[in-house]
Design a protein around this nucleic acid. Structure first.
Length: 279
DNA sequence: CCACCTTTGAAGTAC
DNA sequence: GTACTTCAAAGGTGG
């Protein structure tokens, strides 16, 4: 829960009060929530036209309803912006204009801007002005502080990325699981297919053996030329052999061949030369 | 012209 | 670690 102000007047100055605002310093980057507000304002006219306070209250409520994953889009972008800002700030802090500003703020010069309800209070001397510290030491401390800030941010980003990685790992795990499942299914399907092919091959072999004596009149390529040749069943022509037999039966030609084939098949089945496999 | 209103969150500061 | 402030954005209003 965010507190909007002091519950009672504070007895000392906790703030940077007294320091003037450095106009040359880089602007603070937007937080994730600020980016979210900016986006929602720009893509919703009804929101943009709403009064200031009401609109932000709505967006604040919207934001608090959002999941961590939904906020992640904005947090990542905000983290990037913060990183850029820190680089700019580091550059600025080593610049001449920063040192000038720092010098102009030696011992709180300007009058502070105060919020309503905060009681005015006697100005204090700057802590830094109480110590005559070597410029090298000051710069070193500042450098150190900045490194700490960067370190802190990197740690935070690392945690965020770890969470993202964990989420992605879970997805990967699911996909691997699904892949294993389909591979198993494929394996069993292939085995069934191979088995079926084996059975068909055997059946064809058995049919060829049983129907070896049957010779069909060869119909030839065209209807005009009547071939006198004959055709026997082979392991590769089982399908077409039966098709031709079917055609003969339909056309009621060579009934003796049909009967012979039927007899041979029945004998083969009864003698178990042909073994039928139930499906 | 700028403080104020409002929201959340990061960061700075003092204790 | 806690408590607090300031500042980022937005734009209308009032001193």
């Amino acid at each position: 829960m965010h507190l909007h102000g002091p519950l009672f007047p504070i007895p000392y100055d906790r703030t940077m009060r007294g320091r003037s605002v450095d106009k040359n310093a880089p602007r603070k980057p937007l937080t994730a929530f600020m980016m979210f507000m900016k986006e929602r304002r720009s893509n919703s006219e009804s929101l943009a036209s709403l009064p200031f306070g009401e609109r932000n209250r709505i967006l604040g409520a919207e934001w608090s309803q959002m999941s961590k994953e939904q906020k992640q889009v904005y947090s990542s972008r905000a983290a990037e912006e913060r990183a850029k800002y820190n680089v700019l700030l580091a550059e600025y802090k080593s610049s001449e204009s920063y040192k000038t500003w720092l010098a102009s703020n030696e011992g709180y010069v300007k009058n502070p801007k105060r919020k309503k309800g905060v009681q005015p209070e006697a100005e204090r001397d700057s802590r830094e002005s109480n110590f005559r510290v070597s410029i090298f030491t000051t710069e070193f401390l500042q450098y150190n502080r900045l490194r700490e800030v960067v370190l802190r941010q990197l740690k935070k980003q690392a945690i965020q990325l770890e969470e993202e990685t964990a989420l992605l790992s879970k997805h990967v795990e699911n996909l691997v699981h699904a892949e294993t499942r389909t591979k198993t299914q494929l394996q069993s399907c292939s085995e069934q297919l191979a088995n079926e092919e084996q059975i068909q091959k055997r059946l064809y072999r058995e049919l060829v053996a049983a129907l070896a004596e049957v010779s069909l009149p060869c119909s030839g390529g065209t209807s005009d030329s009547i071939s006198t040749g004959t055709e026997h069943i082979t392991e590769t022509s089982v399908q077409s052999f039966f098709t031709q037999l079917e055609q003969l039966k339909e056309d009621q030609k060579h009934p003796e061949l049909i009967i012979k084939a039927q007899e041979l098949l029945e004998t083969a089945i009864s003698k178990k030369i042909i073994k039928l496999v139930s499906l």
